[in-house]
Design a protein around this nucleic acid. Structure first.
Lengths: 170, 170
DNA sequence: ACGGAATTGGAAATGGGTTGTCAATCATTA
DNA sequence: TAATGATTGACAACCCATTTCCAATTCCGT
């Protein structure tokens, strides 16, 4: 930067890589839309099983751990708050999808384990998800799938970096 | 399908293209996570301006139209319900970001137009978004960006196709 | 011009999530 | 051991969206 003109900042931002900036923005919008659709379709997928996506997710987190977990542990695994998880757990206790186990390490904080019914509902949900993913994958070019997955992971990693501080730009 | 064995269904689903199915599933999970992050970061981005992402979106929809819109029109443009839009509008009326105009075509259904303050907040939000997108784009390979955007659009299109009916599989 | 159908705002209930507070239970360490 | 600090469940309030219901308005076909 040998020239120090006043508007170098704006020029740099808008002219550096206009296509890439536009594409990133469009990817964001696409992700918002896809996220909404996925939630809808996911609910459709498991509604016949009597659960919603939120419950499916909780079942998934505990099944993945392969051992009973406490509410805060599930929340940690899912990346949401323990209160949010607790709401789902309380409902699923009523629905007999989870059962409480005494926690030897904590008197008040129970462990939660899927009941046989819960296990069955979850495996059925996963079976349906596989069929669905298969149908979605059909017709999408394999190499693009791989490249997209790579880029999305990269993108996610970059979203953890704090926002560039306005004041630091010059 | 000349052989009609009982489990042909499951075998077809799990063996056809296991990698692609796994990748599609991972892409879904990545999208859930990215969506969450984007909302967080988006809120961070515009919080200094005194708005949340939801308001930003409404401002965007009306700005894009370049003319005052009614609540249902905004909802239509945003793909959410009119009630949700109305809540944001009512709040933004209080915050002096929008103003009501009489609607010559409808006595009860006012048109909404950003105030000068609203215009300013929105353009400032967009300026920040561009800076942000620029920083995100830096380091992401251009060709992969393009390919990802293409695939996501394709993916979104496929999500509009109704779920394959369980009963129809054979 | 009329009447039924669609649009519209408002209110309320629901869903899935958040934050915040409180009191009880751990866990740690002086 | 006793005090302190972190977890934890329960509860309440809020956010953003949904659905449902109602009443008022507008639109449209006959």
């Amino acid at each position: 930067m040998h020239i120090n003109e006043p508007k170098s900042q704006l020029i740099r931002k808008t002219m550096d890589s206009p296509d890439e900036v536009r594409e990133v923005t469009e990817i964001m919008l696409a992700i918002f839309r896809i996220n909404g659709r996925l939630l809808e379709r996911g609910d459709d997928l498991v509604r016949p099983l009597g659960i919603a996506s939120a419950q499916w997710q909780v079942l998934g987190a505990v099944s993945l751990a392969e051992k009973p977990l406490s509410a805060p542990q599930i929340a940690e695994a899912m990346g949401i708050t323990r209160q949010g998880v607790q709401k789902q757990l309380n409902r699923m206790l009523k629905d007999n999808l989870f059962e409480k186990l005494p926690n030897p390490r904590h008197e008040r904080s129970s462990l939660y384990r899927p009941t046989p019914k819960g296990e069955h509902v979850y495996s059925e949900a996963m079976r349906r998800e596989t069929l669905w993913a298969h149908d979605l994958a059909k017709g999408l070019p394999g190499p693009a799938l791989r490249e997209t997955l790579d880029l999305l992971k990269n993108f996610l990693r970059r979203l953890d970096i704090p926002l560039p501080d306005e004041g630091d730009r010059r």
